[in-house]
Design a protein around this nucleic acid. Structure first.
Lengths: 294, 294
DNA sequence: GCATATTTGTGCGTATGTATT
DNA sequence: TAATACATACGCACAAATATG
């Protein structure tokens, strides 16, 4: 005997009686409050050309995590929303507690939820953050032995074209936004942390104004990585040159953008990023391999 | 009673008697074969300026996953290596099976291990792949409503400077490597899948030859995303223009690199990526928001 | 301080899949 | 082809830690 009530969901993945692929999708609540989700037929990620593809039977927890993940990414579950308590979710998904907890750990590792215990605890939803994307990219880079200078070089190659694009379109709002970042740095005063953050924000904002979300994300990820790496090891290099010089350089970029001189803006920014104080190009960071995760 | 043997590890995270931060680091094996890892004092990822930082007590499974993850990233565990069976790991880490399984699910979601059951099954180690990094970046982008065209624009802005750099340094080996990619595409023949793969490889190789691992990773991620998105929805757009034209364009880039004309190479590549056939700039993909994960 | 709600970690049993014989 | 042994997958129930009011 044992496994007396294996719940309604008959372990998807095994081709039992799943003839109708159209999920039941019960219209709202019947009487008990268990309508929301149910594990549908698995998508079976078959790939490309070779007809026979390696099959990887997805574990139940993976399916549950996938369901919740999709709802979060789609925006059906927004930042701060509370997920139902464990017993409710167990009933809704038709899985046991260990399985549900496995799904929770996965989503928690992706920073898509955070689980607190105690009264009024439970799982809370979070917006997918560039920091997590950066973390995984950092894993790959660390495994490949990339250096800190490598990452900075990438920024140095990526950002100048963005500056050029801003100069080309010559939108007054862009310059205004950048000046606001400049002011934010001025307001930082003695707080070196706030000053560094403001300078990072300047770079990121510049790319964001381009309007390209992918470039903005990549830039954000790269800056996250230098922050994470720099926080661990070489805390000294940060702000190598004095703040006044960088401020002036940033201000000059805004002028060039306003003037509409694309090539000058790109070249200016390229020089700025190659400067030893800021960029540590060819400097010590070039030989300093990443070591995130302690 | 119950919880009869809570094992040696007294649940790190609780500041019990962890006065000595230097881990014990037992010198190899004592007598029984459980020497390898033990959960050390948690790193406590305290952040930046504000002294009081939000504390997030790490779950045990998270710690176990972190240990294994680090060993994989550091290269101590290489591709294909088999992890010990569950009972052994349970003893080594001093955790129960559900906890260990939670850690397994996390690492499996990160594609750092794959667990098969049955005889000679168990967890097998995998190299961190750009595909996973791309998946998480894709989550962020999808949540932010980025379009397929957005991603392509990023590539279009990122790759030309790489072409310029190759032209500047004028290394014969670079041209040779690119010609090999070209030949690979020629060998594809009628197989459109192989042809598309070869063309993607050309782009990626071009960036890889730059020597910058971060740029290579980012480029790889972007291409992974268009592949994943394109595989789902608009399978038609792929290879919009005929293959001969793109082949000629690719070949021309090699010539410009060999000639050492950096600006021409960059401009040529920029035009190539902006071409409607290849780039779908301003085309239908511009309004086509990402929809990975079904 | 105490009651309550909620997650956390654990032990153990059964089911199922996989390779070997 | 069938039997068998191995290893994970999933389930249930209990005790402990924890945060709220």
């Amino acid at each position: 005997m044992a496994r007396p009530a294996a719940s309604a969901a008959p372990r998807p993945g095994t081709p039992s009686g799943a003839t109708s692929s159209t999920a039941v999708s019960s219209s709202a609540a019947t009487s008990t409050a268990l309508p929301s989700f149910a594990l549908p037929a698995l998508p079976l990620p078959v790939g490309s050309s070779p007809v026979g593809r390696q099959v990887r039977v997805p574990k139940t927890a993976e399916l549950v995590a996938g369901q919740l993940r999709r709802r979060i990414i789609r925006g059906e579950l927004a930042e701060g929303d509370a997920l139902p308590p464990e017993p409710t979710l167990m009933a809704q998904f038709g899985v046991s507690r260990p399985t549900l907890r496995e799904a929770f750990r996965v989503l928690e590792a992706e920073a898509l939820i955070s689980v607190r215990r105690g009264a009024h605890g439970g799982a809370r939803v979070h917006t997918p953050s560039p920091a997590v994307a950066a973390r995984y990219a950092g894993l790959v880079l660390e495994h490949r032995g990339a250096t800190l200078g490598d990452i900075h070089q990438a920024s140095a190659l990526l950002e100048p074209p963005c500056a050029a694009r801003l100069a080309e379109r010559r939108n007054p709002a862009d310059a205004a936004e950048l000046r606001r970042c400049l002011a934010q740095g001025d307001a930082a005063g003695d707080d070196v942390g706030a000053l560094a953050a403001a300078q990072t924000t300047f770079h990121l904002t510049m790319v964001q104004l381009t309007g390209n979300r992918s470039l903005a994300l990549v830039t954000d990820m790269l800056h996250h990585l230098v922050d994470a790496a720099g926080a661990q090891q070489t805390r000294s290099l940060v702000l190598g040159s004095d703040a006044d010089a960088t401020r002036a350089t940033h201000a000059r970029l805004i002028d060039l953008i306003e003037a509409g001189d694309a090539t000058a803006a790109a070249e200016h920014w390229s020089r700025h990023l190659a400067a030893p104080g800021h960029a540590m190009a060819g400097g010590p960071a070039d030989t300093c391999v990443l070591d995130l995760l302690g």
